[in-house]
Amino acid sequence: MTVDNALISKLEKLARLQLPPEQRQQLLGDLNAILEMVAKLNELDTEGVAPLTYISDAVFLGREDVVAKQVDREAALRNAPDQDGQYFKVPKVIDL
């Protein structure tokens, strides 16, 4: 698989990003290099080997259903680029 301009455009859309042209070129190179490195795995013969989805053998233990570890609103909003003391404020998503 190779990353081309069309794929970058699709990824931009999915990630809600707009890349400046120079970054776009750099990303194109970086992504291709990453894929190339991972493609090395294709040299292995995995015939008959079950897919490994989880690295550990841990299974579901679950948490008891109790309220714990909430943070207060001031702390929650502190790192937001924009907020009004009650809500996170983001660019308008829908035109009404």
Binding site: D84, Y87, F88
Partner: peptide, 11 residues
């Protein structure tokens, strides 16, 4: 979406 003219508010 209807409380602030420029922003959407998120809860």
């Amino acid at each position: 979406h209807d409380q602030d003219p420029q922003h959407s508010l998120v809860d």
